[in-house]
Design a protein around this nucleic acid. Sequence first.
RNA 1: GGAGAGGUGGCCGAGUUGGACGAAGGCGCGCGAUUGGAAAUCGCGUGUGCCGGCAGAACCGGCACCGAGGGUUCGAAUCCCUCCCUCUCCGCCA
Length: 431
Amino acid sequence: MLDLRFIRKNPEFVQDALNRRGMDLSIQEFLQLDEERRSVIQDVEELRRQRNQASEEVARLKKNGEDASEQIDQLSRVSDRIKELEAKKKDREERLREIRLAIPNIPQEDVPTGDSDEDNIEVRRWGELPSFGFEPKPHWELGPELGGLDFERAAKITGSRFAVYWSWAARLERALINFMLELQTQQNGYTEILPPFIVNSESMQGTGQLPKFEEDLFKLEDWDYYLIPTAEVPLINLHMNEVIPEDDLPLAYTAFTPCFRSEAGSYGKDTKGLIRQHQFNKVELVRFTRPEDSKEQLEILLGHAEAVLRELELPYRVVTLCTGDLGFSASKTYDVEIWLPGQNAFREISSCSNCGDFQARRAGIRYKPRDAKGSELLHTLNGSGMAVGRTLLAILENNQQEDGSVLIPKALRPYMGGMERIEPTTGAGRA
RNA sequence: GGAGAGGUGGCCGAGUUGGACGAAGGCGCGCGAUUGGAAAUCGCGUGUGCCGGCAGAACCGGCACCGAGGGUUCGAAUCCCUCCCUCUCCGCCA
């Protein structure tokens, strides 16, 4: 959510930012409603001032046992008028709020203008792309062949876009989760959180999923509850309507959670394998910072995300999202893209965003500057560190051997009971 | 799920026969006085949002806010309704 006064004073700037994002939303209506709202407020408050004054008069008359029926009669009419104007004011405010909740964040100046992911800018690459003396397989072949990933039975017990993990795969997923959490908590200073996986609509609005993206969410029937699409939602809303002392900043939280997404509108995309699931695991990173620190903090956050892939020795690249590819709440986003030999392409595995004060304003998250009175909105950042399923699939594809086995990254072996390699026999025992 | 109690300012806590300003009092916090310094004591101050004055800040004026929303009334923290949350007891349950 943007600052009301900011929009009012910089309408061209806001309109331009919306256009850069490729939105055809016009803020004309917004400005009109804002004007009307302020005009009504002035009228209503003037009437209220009169009423307050006259009410005191009535009170005094009654106290002295005098007759006040004339004044009461008059006041009755004033009150009716106030009610009318209140209704108008409420209407304008609601419409204004609706619009404001639907306006995305303003991209930072250094975000490249563009229409789609093709206009994203590559920042850097890390690691060497593996070369194979054979045709590398995609994970949706490797996984089932090694007896670890089972998409058919998942489709039976639930439906499409779900997976059953057997034996080594289940253990590998769990190992990755532990590895990531240990890295972020022990080396990068994050506090581990285990939040609810179900949140209410207020939280969803706080981080920006609602009201615009309801169709992407799973909602519990007859409840104002939703399955979280990312741990960012519960983590950011931990501090909803709170004021945090400056000395406590930056706050850094990490959490492992499953994530649930309806993937509405992505029919036919990534139908094979683990890439796009309705339920997937993710270790999330979130930071609350002072406004003046958030740009630097985004680089730090990105570094923490990258550390995961470096430790696992998986090749990746970092791209800056262009305005057209930027998420609703973000002012700037880096995507980390992992190399997938099975698809001969880089695919997103982490997204690290600076949301500025956009979420803080929606969720009412402020900080108290050390040497100032009052409080100010702080800045929020979030990033994946990492999407676990995609990391697992990247290991399968990058570390596959000609004999059909897969090498387990060294950093992960302690979490796998010392296991060094996944072989077809590793998963033996299941049908 | 059943029965009961309660939600007031940073905190504690008055107010519950509707009418005296954000609302007694205490604590905390800030400034000042006192002191060689400190404690104690005394004095003053101490919320947020919105609208207007202003380019903006400070400041000034106004309006709103006593869990949320609605209602009754000339007027509600105080009365009525709905919802949310907390606590206690019972039941059920991993």
